[in-house]
Design a protein around this nucleic acid. Structure first.
Lengths: 168, 168
DNA sequence: CTAATTTGCTGTCTAGGACAGGTAAACGCG
DNA sequence: CGCGTTTACCTGTCCTAGACAGCAAATTAG
């Protein structure tokens, strides 16, 4: 198995992109496998992450943060709700909106998910020195920033204060 | 404190992994969007790539290369066949097997796909010097190699244990 | 007040991963 | 040679998910 270190020839014009593409597939297979031990899927896990960090959120904001449309957001929230990991509560300030918040069961998943990420990290960066890991992280962040710029609809930017000021 | 460019706190133990995770999502959204202009989806495109580079393949080998199981391989091949991009032909040496090969229509996609990768690459590596791009590529390849090792179903080792016990 | 917008929900279509069989061909051993 | 095992492929089911269209209720602008 030879040239597995290179991109297919049709992607010769995009070696980095294609490597991201391949890395993405394999890495998320691996992550998905680990996640499934916690009974979660990728989107669900990402949504929980946001909720853990940012607290109760409206579905619209949640979806925007994850780059989903409203339909997808509804479904993921529903599944998390059915699984008992989140709860929905009417937004006191806007009766169209629903606030999604993590339940105790959802909170208790956090330890497990953290362990998963640590484990995944070990597999991913095996054999890299701390300095190399730093380079890797910087590189990835830079690429992410680039791609974020060109994909509208994915949590735009730092100061993209969702609503409140966005009334234009 | 991590800004928005960092991983969620629950992934503090896996900053690189989580960045890959996020980059993967966004990048494949972007790639998927571009690919759809050619009427392809990710797996289909990857399969065509393999066929372009390696010529006619048996389904088993194709699936192994892409990390799919046989059922998934069958479906992707069928869709490519229905779309007219590949053709199936009995393996002369083994009548159980089918050789999958690219049709003229499939070949003609190649230019379009190459353009797509070039375009994606420009978006992805915007602002990076050639040296930085080399670092990025090396980094990504290294990470890919690591992850490949730990994902048994992906073209890591052809003879990997794939057997599952029917009936528990 | 009305009209437009926002928010969330539903349904449909397609792609896809995982898993459980099922058939036919090839192989291997006595 | 015959028979059991393995391999290659296919089918069907169940689930997650993205894209898209349409809908009702609440809110906001004029």
């Amino acid at each position: 198995m030879d040239e597995r270190s290179g991109a297919p020839s049709a992607a010769a014009g995009g070696p980095i992109s294609h490597t991201i593409f391949r890395l993405a597939r394999i890495h998320s297979q691996l992550a998905g496998r680990l996640l499934r031990e916690a009974g979660l899927h990728a989107s669900q896990e990402l949504m929980l992450m946001v909720l853990w960090d940012a607290g109760p959120q409206r579905q619209t904001d949640l979806g925007a943060e994850l780059g989903m449309d409203s339909a997808g957001t509804t479904r993921v929230v529903h599944r998390l709700e059915q699984a008992g990991f989140v709860r929905r509560r009417p937004d006191p300030g806007d009766r169209r909106a629903t606030l999604v918040e993590v339940t105790a069961a959802g909170e208790s998943l956090r330890t497990q998910v953290e362990r998963m990420w640590t484990q995944l990290e070990e597999l991913t960066v095996a054999g890299l020195s701390p300095a190399e890991q730093q380079v890797a992280l910087d590189t990835l962040l830079r690429l992410e920033r680039n791609v974020l710029e060109t994909v509208p609809g994915s949590r735009a930017g730092p100061a993209a204060a969702r609503r409140s000021v966005t009334r234009e």
